[in-house]
């Protein structure tokens, strides 16, 4: 065990893992996080907390993760390189460790242009691959980026994102290989809608021998409305949404119901693809639907959660 996190235990025990995403509030109320925890605690193995997602200011992901921890949830700390330089990142990592946070997902971060502070300066002192490598060195070599020693353990289960669909897509697997080489233990991918293309990607990734080295969790997004699927198809980079799914949403009597059905079907199809070790549900502003999706996808009950203190070996 590298971190002893619940997510790591579930994956190493060979279970098909379920993670979900929780966006922290645009305010200082811990109740929102506690509410999310109560809702999702029994239906997923770990909860990702986004880090000022789409460059919109929200409660700090470290703080929200700490609250989840109090609620007995295993949090995945999302950490982007947009807002912090290498000093701030390492300091937050130490703090996260002290708070018992054991999973970290290393991300580049959406450009500030898309958020609510478009005139801000971005940092990008290091990039996501360098962040993976930095956390790995902090954990395994107990060294800061500067080479100085760190006191004590930093047992983190290190994650990275993968986008199998960005076009041109010929070098996406190579990019994943780089993240694995840098030290990623698990991957949470961009949302899958095009199962064929994803299957092809996974075959290539498998041929490169990457799936023996990393746990791959495929992302899904439950779609709430026709407007949402159209918007995502047109405007969200890195998604590949087949026309057929848009048509299904358009023709459905109840769009939400169809959205749930599609999501459940996607999970079932994705699950059959060799090498997929779990699913990551990103129900943006629709977290309440997650329990139903997990249940209908046949993923309940979840392996028993361990809420006690976790230590690396």
């Amino acid at each position: 065990m590298k971190s002893g996190s619940h997510l790591e235990k579930v994956l190493t025990a060979g279970h098909f893992a379920v993670t979900a995403e929780l966006g922290p509030p645009k305010g200082g109320d811990a109740g929102v996080i506690r509410h999310g925890a109560a809702m999702l605690k029994d239906v997923c193995d770990a909860l990702n907390v986004t880090d000022n997602q789409t460059a919109v200011v929200r409660m700090s992901s470290v703080a929200a993760c700490a609250i989840l921890k109090q609620e007995g949830v295993d949090p995945v700390l999302q950490m982007t390189c947009r807002d912090r330089n290498r000093l701030a990142i390492q300091s937050d990592i130490l703090g996260a460790s002290a708070l018992g946070i054991r999973n970290i997902l290393c991300l580049t971060g959406d450009h500030q242009k898309f958020g609510n502070h478009p005139t801000a300066k971005n940092v990008h002192d290091i990039d996501s691959i360098q962040l993976v490598q930095m956390v790995k060195r902090m954990r395994d070599e107990r060294k800061f980026d500067c080479g100085e020693e760190i006191q004590g353990e930093l047992p983190f289960f290190i994650g990275a994102a993968a986008n199998p669909f960005a076009d041109p897509y010929e070098f996406r697997p190579i990019r994943l290989a780089k993240k694995v080489k840098a030290g990623a233990d698990f991957i949470q991918s961009q949302a899958v809608f095009n199962v064929e293309k994803f299957r092809d990607y996974m075959a290539r990734v498998r041929d490169m021998g990457l799936l023996e080295k990393v746990y791959f969790l495929a992302g899904v997004i439950p779609v709430k409305s026709v407007g949402m699927i159209r918007y995502m198809k047109e405007s969200v980079a890195g998604l590949d949404i087949p026309d057929e799914l848009v048509r299904r949403m358009e023709n459905a009597e109840k769009a939400r119901e169809e959205g749930v059905r599609i999501c459940v079907e996607l999970i079932q199809q994705i699950r059959e693809i060799p090498g997929v070790r779990g699913v990551h549900i990103m129900a943006v502003a629709w977290e309440s639907i997650v329990p139903r999706i997990v249940e209908e996808a046949g993923l309940l009950p979840r392996p028993v959660a361990s809420t006690g203190p976790t230590q690396g070996e």
Binding site: T108, D127, Q130, N163, D167, A237, G238
Partner: peptide, 16 residues
Amino acid sequence: CAKGLANGPCGGYRDG
């Protein structure tokens, strides 16, 4: 690169 990335692209590009 708008983010000055050192190790390859972010996931955000579209049609290159």
